Amino acid sequence: MEAQEQKRSTVNAVLPARPNPTLLRRMAGSSWIGFVLNRAGGVLATFVVAVIMTFLIVRLIPGDPAVSAAGQNADLVRIEQVRQELGLDLPMPVQFMNYVTGVLRGDLGFSFSLNSPVSDGVFSRLPFTAGLAVLALLVVLVVAVPMGMSVGILTRNGRRTWLGSAFGYGTAFLSAIPAYVMATALVLIFAIWLKALPPAYSAGNITAAIILPCAALSIASICSIARIVRRETAVVLEQDYMRTARGWRVGTGRLYAKYALPNLLTTTLTLSGIIMIGMLGGAISVELVFNWPGLGFGIVNAVKTKDYPLIQGIVLVLAMLGSILTLIVDIVLAIVDPRIRG
Rank of each mutant, 00 (worst) to 15 (best):
V235K: 15
D120K: 02
I274R: 00
T171V: 12
E238R: 15
M147H: 05
G282N: 07
A209S: 15
D330F: 03
A234C: 07
E287A: 00
P293T: 06
R231P: 00
G158T: 08
E85I: 09
N301L: 12
T101E: 11
V181H: 03
A191K: 13
G281P: 05
L264C: 12
L212N: 05
I335G: 05
L186F: 05
A334D: 13
A66S: 15
G87C: 09
P19H: 11
G281K: 00
V329S: 02
G204D: 15
E2P: 00
F173N: 05
V134D: 01
T22H: 14
L264D: 12
G170Q: 08
G34N: 10
T10Y: 12
A144I: 08
S285P: 01
L212W: 04
P213W: 03
L333P: 02
N38P: 00
T46W: 00
G41F: 06
L23Q: 15
A200E: 15
I331C: 04
S68D: 14
Y99I: 08
S218Y: 06
Q84K: 09
R159Y: 10
R78W: 10
A226V: 13
L108W: 06
L108C: 01
G121S: 08
A172H: 04
F190N: 06
L188Q: 11
V151T: 10
S224I: 12
I275Y: 06
P309I: 09
V317S: 00
G281I: 03
E287I: 04
G106C: 02
E232M: 13
G313W: 04
D337I: 12
Q239Y: 02
